[in-house]
Structure formats: C-alpha cells, structure tokens
Design a protein around this nucleic acid. Structure first.
Lengths: 201, 201
DNA sequence: ACCTGAACACCGTTCAAGT
DNA sequence: ACCTGAACACCGTTCAAGT
C-alpha cells in the first residue's frame, strides 16, 4: 500500500510527445550504459547514445540519482513481492532468511556500484531515491518481524542493522567480485548472528 | 617478519635530492587532499598544491593506488601491532573480537572511500597495495586462529570471510555516515555469528 | 514547453622540450 | 635523471538561442 503510493509519485503531469520520447529513450539508454559501466557511467555518453543534447538529459534528470530513480520504476514493487513470497513459503527461519538475503543482495546490486548508493540513500531523506530505499527497508522489517513473532530471532536484533549488514555484503561482493557461493557463506554468518539459539528464546 | 619484509620493498634505490623532495611533498599533500576529499580526491590538485607539474606526480606514482600505497608506509606495521596487542591482552573471546574488529574498521577507513579499495585489493594480486592488504588479512587470521585454539569460534568460520564482513561494515559505515555506537552494534552481530555457542564446541 | 549545442571549468594522462 | 607545462580527450554543468 505505502509502497504502491510511493511508486505513483513519479511522473504526474503528461509530457509533450517529443519530451516523452526523449525521456523514455534516456531511461532505456541509461539502463544500458549503467549495465556496462556501473552507476558511475558517463552521463555524457548516455545523452550522446540517446541522440539528445546534454541539456535535455539535465532537464529531465537534474541529478544522477534522479536518473537512477527513473530506471528503478518497478523495483520497489518487485522487492515487496519477493518479501511476501518468502514469508508465504512458510519455511523455517534459516531458510527464510537465506532466501530473503539473497534476494536483497540481488536487488541491491541492480547495477555495479549501486549498493553503496542505495545504502547511503536510506539514511538521506533528501535523496531522490530515498522512497524506494525505504520500501526496501520496510520489506526487510516485514520479513524480520514475521520471524520475530515466532521467536526465531535473538532479542535486540534491529531490522535497520540487519539491512546494513546485508548491504555491506552486497557492496563488498560487487566491488571485489566475490563468487555466489561465498556470498551465501557470508550471509550464513549474518544469519547465525541473528537467529535465536535453540536453547533460550 | 613477513610484514616487515613487505614494508621494506618500498623505495629501494636512492633518489636525486630534488626528486626526493618532490616525492615527500607529494605524499604529504596527498595525505591532506585524501583526508579532505577521500580517496577519489583530484590528482591534479595534489600536484598543484605540491607545486609540481602533473608529469612529476605520474613519474613517481603511475597509478592512484601507487600513491595510496605510499602514504600507507607504516600502516601494516600498526595493524600487526594492534593484532598482537589484542591477543596479548588475554581477554575473553567476545571482548577480543570487539576490540579487534573496531581496530580493523579504523584501519580500513584510513580515508573516506578507502575500505572498498582495500577490500578489492585483497583479492587482486596485481594491485600495488596488495601486499599491505595481505598483511591485514594475515593479522586477522592470526587473531582468529588464536581464538580458534581455545575453541571459541564456530566450526567452519573462515578468516577470509570474517575479513570481508568487517570490510563490508567499514564500507557501509563510511559511506552512510553511521555513528560509532551503531557500528559497534553491527560488529556485535558479526561476533554473534562467529563465536561458538556456550553449549556445543 | 522543450531542445540544441556552444561554452566553461575541471580532470586524467601523455610527451616533447628543457635542465 | 628528473622536471615542466602544453596538449589531448573526456566529463559534468550551464545557458543563450532557437522551434
């Protein structure tokens, strides 16, 4: 609900036909360039490849983060869907966390270098992508709350901190090129750090 | 011993008087600029502030990492000293890890943005700072091995993975400006993830 | 209302010319 | 052997001129 609302705060007023065409072309091209070069890919090249002047890019996307936000249109929705799917599967705590953390890492590494940007945006209300990151945080809280109800988590474990740890794993994994199975192992340690001991709740 | 050796592989042949002066001035200035702007600070500005032409900077430091390496001269030694101090203190496992991880984070955030660079260099033998990062990794292994001998760690915990987790925390902390007490709490979760349960070894 | 593209400041990198 | 600084290619950003 709140996620859907934040999704809708995007492009309100209709654009002139040519403007809309340029907007779409820019987003599409940005997706390409970011996929190749990571989130720090050249804006100049995006404009050139899209066949528009640099001013046009700046008119539509005043900052780089505005552009990143534009190509994340259905991102929050997918994140939320994943969280619900994971909860709905009704698996034991460890498996639930394993699945969910892997999904988180995947969403955070949307493009090379994205994880740091997204994590920083979580703590920066002024960021154009702050809303999307909040949706991610909310989904994470949702999953953890669900597990906490069953007493599966250690006391004092905060969703925000878990989010940051997983972001850290995503950032490092993407920067150092850590292979998938080792990422799983990293997440395994985090999971061991937050699940309740079998003995005391 | 190995750390000291790697420390000595630095400037072997003596430089001409003027070259040595420029070298020192560049390192000093780089330290300033990196402290202000982080590891991505402008090389151009470093050369300008040091009062030398850009070519002089490139002659001494062909890549940015070479420059970073130069201002890390006694870094590895300090890291190793910290690891030995922590082990020597003879504290219980949890306190030992708490102290050591805090030291690690501090060393990894030498300058803003340094943590990612250092972590990436750990897995890249071609990097000019690979040796220093290996020293860090070795010190970490040393501490963990010490704790493992007492059976204080879970089975299957690998030093390399722990190193990466702490790097992740350092990276995120520095990128998102996480306050020190929350950093401690993040490290606390990692510690919970690697220490053995009171019951089974 | 929107686009173009020239213009500016900045940066990394190279290299011929100097001493 | 070392330094200088011009030169090149690239980038982000702005803005006057156009339609």
């Amino acid at each position: 609900m709140t996620a859907a609302a934040s999704e809708l705060t995007e492009p309100v007023k209709p654009l002139r036909a040519d403007a809309q065409r340029n907007y779409d072309k820019l987003v599409e091209t940005a997706r390409e360039v970011f996929a190749e070069r990571g989130t720090e890919g050249s804006l100049d090249q995006i404009a050139k490849r899209a066949g528009v002047g640099p001013g046009t890019l700046y008119r539509h996307f005043p900052t780089r983060e505005d552009l990143i936000g534009a190509l994340m249109r259905d991102w929050s929705a997918r994140v939320v869907a994943d969280s619900e799917a994971v909860i709905g599967a009704g698996l034991p705590a460890r498996e639930t966390l394993q699945r969910w953390f892997l999904a988180l890492v995947e969403h955070l590494t949307l493009h090379r270098g994205a994880a740091v940007t997204l994590t920083a945006a979580m703590d920066d209300p002024g960021s154009p992508i702050h809303g999307k990151c909040q949706a991610l945080a909310a989904a994470n809280r949702h999953v953890l709350d669900h597990l906490a109800e069953d007493g599966a988590l250690r006391k004092g474990v905060e969703a925000r901190q878990v989010m940051r740890l997983v972001s850290g794993v995503a950032t490092i994994a993407d920067a150092a090129g850590i292979p998938p199975d080792e990422v799983e192992s990293l997440l395994g340690i985090v999971i061991d750090g937050i699940v309740a001991d079998p003995a005391g709740g």
